[in-house]
């Protein structure tokens, strides 16, 4: 089974603090990591390879420094990494990104499965996975939470929807976007890290891909960002202490009053 996993490098947010004065996020000195939601796709890919054989290729579109993310994925157990990088790719929206990634995937030869995270934690759109499926004209299942069965021709998956889990039998090749429930990502091993350092990472760019230049990067993106605001996220709400019988009663009195004012009761 040949599996391709497009991943994204994003700013690490676990250690990010909020600035109490301005109420915005402090992003200085933030490191880059693999999009945490891509880790579930990587883990699933490695598990499927371990059971069914084949290989797992990770790829990422980004600056040359994004190869660090590829090496991290290889250290977890992926076989190959491909860096898709070019100045002309910069500033791409989800439409242009999914176009470029789909062309890169076509360039990688035959495959059975494309696995992607549900969305990236920075852009937060969840549109690139479905977009790649549309460009490649292959079937798509989003929000996949379980893989039930894999045969030579099909994969049966459960897809988390509002009312429960849809069970879908998908012909290969197909594209799945996965949620956390699908797997529990492993940590890189020492051996994996060694291998990752030694692995050669081929580069795909406009020079060795056959791309429509008008569909690339900022220029090729249908959507344009016209304004960015940093909203104050802190709300400066009312605070009450609930200590002892009386304190608790008083706090609840206040809360009831608040709920009444907001017409919530």
């Amino acid at each position: 089974m040949n599996i391709i996993i497009p991943i994204k490098q994003v700013p690490e947010t676990s250690n990010v603090k909020m600035d109490k004065e301005t109420g915005t996020m402090i992003r200085d000195g933030v490191e880059s990591v693999i999009n945490p939601l891509d880790l579930y796709a990587i883990e699933l890919g490695i598990q499927l390879k371990e059971i069914h054989g084949g290989k797992v290729t990770v790829c990422t579109m980004g600056p040359p420094s994004a190869q660090k993310a590829l090496r991290e994925a290889i250290a977890m157990g992926c076989d190959d990494g491909i860096l898709i990088t070019d100045r002309k790719f910069a500033g791409a929206d989800t439409w242009a990104t999914s176009y470029t990634l789909s062309e890169a995937i076509k360039n990688m030869g035959s495959f059975d499965l494309v696995l992607a995270g549900e969305r990236a934690t920075d852009g937060d759109t969840g549109q690139v996975g479905p977009g790649i499926a549309a460009w490649l004209n292959i079937p798509l299942a989003t929000y996949v939470s379980h893989v039930d069965e894999v045969t030579n021709t099909h994969i049966t998956v459960e897809r988390l929807v509002e009312e429960g889990y849809q069970i879908l039998k998908m012909p290969l090749p197909t594209l799945l976007t996965v949620v956390k429930e699908v797997s529990d990502p492993r940590l890189p091993t020492l051996r994996g890290k060694k291998k990752a350092r030694a692995t050669e990472i081929p580069v795909f760019s406009t020079e060795n891909m056959n791309l429509n230049e008008g569909s690339l990067g900022l220029k090729g993106s249908p959507t344009k960002v016209v304004k960015i605001d940093y909203p104050k996220v802190t709300r400066g709400g009312k605070m009450v202490s609930a200590n002892g019988e009386e304190g608790i009663n008083a706090a609840i009195d206040e809360l009831i009053k608040f709920l009444e004012e907001k017409e919530l009761i």
Partner: peptide
């Protein structure tokens, strides 16, 4: 509590 419109400090 930074995000709360109403916060109760208590058990």
């Amino acid at each position: 509590f930074q995000l709360a419109d109403f916060g109760i400090i208590g058990n």
